[in-house]
């Protein structure tokens, strides 16, 4: 039931991946209005899969709206989104919400929260346990998972959220400002954790961030958006080495990238 869908493709389908080309997320002709105000009008974009992509832009420009629509969480007025040629429904997608407090199920223990997506998929209990155990071992989780989420710290709760999102081995993972409710120390720690996860799994990640430093540190590409109606201002390549240690984030190259992104951002905000 949870078999990777692209793995069962018939002989007539030659996956672009097998031909060595970059797999793409293609967004075409996306429209979205909220009560008369246009957020997106004929928005099109290609993004590479298997990469870490950060989304950065002015407040209220529609970053959340964009990832909600392309993750299938919210409807679009018009347009098409394909992951490597497959629809949203045919793609294994996970989503990490900003507000972990309101996204975890407080009536379930942390461990049962992590089990839940597999339960929904109909994975048998024994296999579920095995997969969760693997995941926990892989990421060396040191949280008391028999606790209820509300007894855990904010960082631990968001870690549980991320584990819950990862347990299905998603092809694409969306994160909407996942660390913005955490204190600074925890935020730094969680950025490191997320990096580790990405380097291990190479899962396509789409991260919305309101922190430019974070957006650049974690990403292969930073998608800079304009004010509404929203367009792509620029897609900035972050050609820095992984892992993005403190040495990397204090390098001249990093500060240069940051200055460039900030320039683009201010130009957009001032509407030049």
């Amino acid at each position: 039931m949870h078999a990777p869908r692209q793995g069962v493709a018939g002989a007539d389908v030659v996956s672009p991946r097998s031909s060595g080309r970059t797999r793409l997320i293609t967004i075409r002709g996306l429209d979205k209005t909220f009560g008369g105000s246009t957020i997106y009008k004929d928005f099109s974009l290609d993004l590479p899969q298997g990469r870490f992509i950060s989304i950065f832009g002015p407040n209220g420009c529609g970053k959340s709206t964009l990832i909600n629509m392309i993750s299938g969480l919210a409807p679009m007025d018009a347009g098409e989104v394909l992951y490597d040629g497959q629809t949203i429904q045919e793609t294994r997608i996970s989503y990490v919400f900003q507000n972990y407090r309101e996204a975890l199920f407080p009536w379930l223990r942390a461990i049962d929260n992590i089990h839940y997506p597999l339960k929904v998929m109909g994975v048998p209990a024994a296999e579920r346990r095995a997969r969760v155990d693997n995941l926990l071992a892989e990421f060396e989780v040191k949280i008391d998972l028999n606790a209820y989420p509300y007894t855990l710290s904010g960082g631990q709760q968001q870690t549980v959220s991320i584990l819950r999102a990862l347990v299905t081995s998603p092809e694409v993972l969306f994160l909407d400002e996942p660390f913005s409710a955490l204190d600074y120390e925890m935020t730094l720690f969680m950025r490191e954790q997320l990096q580790k996860i990405f380097m291990k799994t190479r899962t396509t990640m789409l991260l919305v961030s309101h922190d430019l430093e974070e957006a650049i540190q974690l990403a292969d590409k930073v998608l800079l958006l304009t004010r509404r109606p929203t367009r792509v201002a620029e897609i900035v390549d972050v050609d820095l080495a992984w892992p993005r240690t403190a040495a990397v984030t204090t390098s001249e190259r990093f500060t240069g990238l940051k200055r460039h992104c900030l320039d683009v951002f201010w130009r957009q905000v001032k509407g030049e």
Binding site: S71, L73, I93, F97, A103, V120, M121
Partner: peptide
């Protein structure tokens, strides 16, 4: 609260579920 409902739906849970 809509977030948890959205979260469950994003995992592919049916309306009944």
């Amino acid at each position: 609260r809509q977030t948890r409902i959205l979260a469950a739906r994003s995992m592919g849970a049916s309306s009944l579920r």
